[in-house]
Nucleic acid binder design. Structure first.
Lengths: 201, 201
DNA sequence: CCCCGAACTTGACAGTGTCAAGATTTAAAA
DNA sequence: TTTTAAATCTTGACACTGTCAAGTTCGGGG
């Protein structure tokens, strides 16, 4: 439904993908409109036929990356029977994503202001897709643990915040921790109700 | 011990403070060396007498802000008798700091690479000062709860990650959550051992 | 007193985002 | 098919950025 090849042949998508490559190579700070244009073999002002701003290109790039992120999260819980281990896999996938692409976290979360509706279920604002995966998986777990539904919001935000915090500390700040991160977010899962495998040393 | 007033009178400190003002007004993206210089009434190259880089000025600014952050955290636990409520206050202070200065989080954590030693207690790398406050307060609580010391590291990272995650989601991303954040990180504190005041509605 | 060196200014350079004007090509209309 | 309009891309310019080299000014130690 979009633009078909004119002169270059699907610039716009090429700009988006090349821009993402650039960020992965040189980091968010090394990004520039003119570099992307040069890498695509077009003149420095060519992007303005497809994006009114650098911000708009960055937003389109962020959308693309967000989609990959969502796919990655979904894949991690697909086929998982046990809700508890599904949550564990989800957290692992969340963190692995930002560990493998350290530039993505500042890029996704400090760039254009996404607004994530968390609370009032779908009132206008569409839920942030990765968060939606998070929510459905979490609710499944909470039901299986027999948690009271009033605590859903609190527990969901706790788990999401913790996983996001770990990803944040790992990928951006220079935090070194020799312990097992998986144990860290298990702390919340355990607190849900069942106390499986506390340390038994 | 530093430079005394020559022409301007304590530029360097003025640059640092003015730079921080700029970031609070225009955000991290609106920051520029030349703007800071202009705001200080000096020429655009004057900062190079005190900093070899923009990065170095930013690093000095970050140090200054980090100190304020540490003071704020320490003040929040001062005089608190009950370890549990001390931890609550600490988390509140952590988040309040970044809520009041939304530009600080990307500035502190995505700028120059601080390295935070978490695990092996003081082996070379000095602990990140705000984290040090966190650690001592947390350990006090864990002891009062009778937690096994082997779990100290895990519990500490869990609590820090969660609080940092909440601050991150609140101040950078456009997350809207109508619930009570304080309840959110209480989830971890409860999971420590005692279950005080679960919802009773 | 003089003079050395630290602090600051001036002017230049390459690189950035953005826009206006023109050239080129494609799709649609006649 | 020829003509026309719109989309795409280029070129050149502007203001702004960080950085550096060369000068200028000023203060304190000889």
């Amino acid at each position: 439904m979009n633009q078909k090849p004119y002169h270059h042949g699907d610039l716009r998508n090429t700009l988006i993908e090349t821009g993402i490559e650039l960020i992965n190579e040189d980091g968010l700070g090394g990004f520039s409109l003119r570099k992307v244009a040069a890498k695509c073999g077009v003149s420095h002002a060519a992007p303005y036929s497809h994006f009114k701003d650098v911000q708009q290109l960055l937003a389109a790039m962020a959308d693309h990356v967000t989609e990959q992120f969502t796919v990655s999260l979904q894949a991690s819980v697909e086929g998982q029977e046990d809700p508890m281990s599904a949550m564990g896999e989800l957290g692992t996938a969340y963190i692995a994503f930002f560990e493998q692409h350290p530039a993505y976290l500042p890029f996704l979360f400090f760039q254009s202001g996404i607004t994530i509706q968390v609370d009032g279920v779908e009132e206008g604002v569409p839920a942030y897709p990765p968060f939606a995966v998070f929510r459905t998986t979490a609710y499944r777990l909470f039901r299986s643990l027999g948690l009271p539904p009033e605590r859903d919001g609190t527990m969901l935000m706790a788990y999401w915040s913790l996983v996001h915090g770990v990803a944040s500390l790992l990928s951006s700040s220079g935090v070194r921790y020799s312990g097992n991160w998986q144990e860290v977010w298990q702390v919340i899962l355990q607190s849900g109700g069942t106390e499986n495998e506390t340390d038994r040393a």
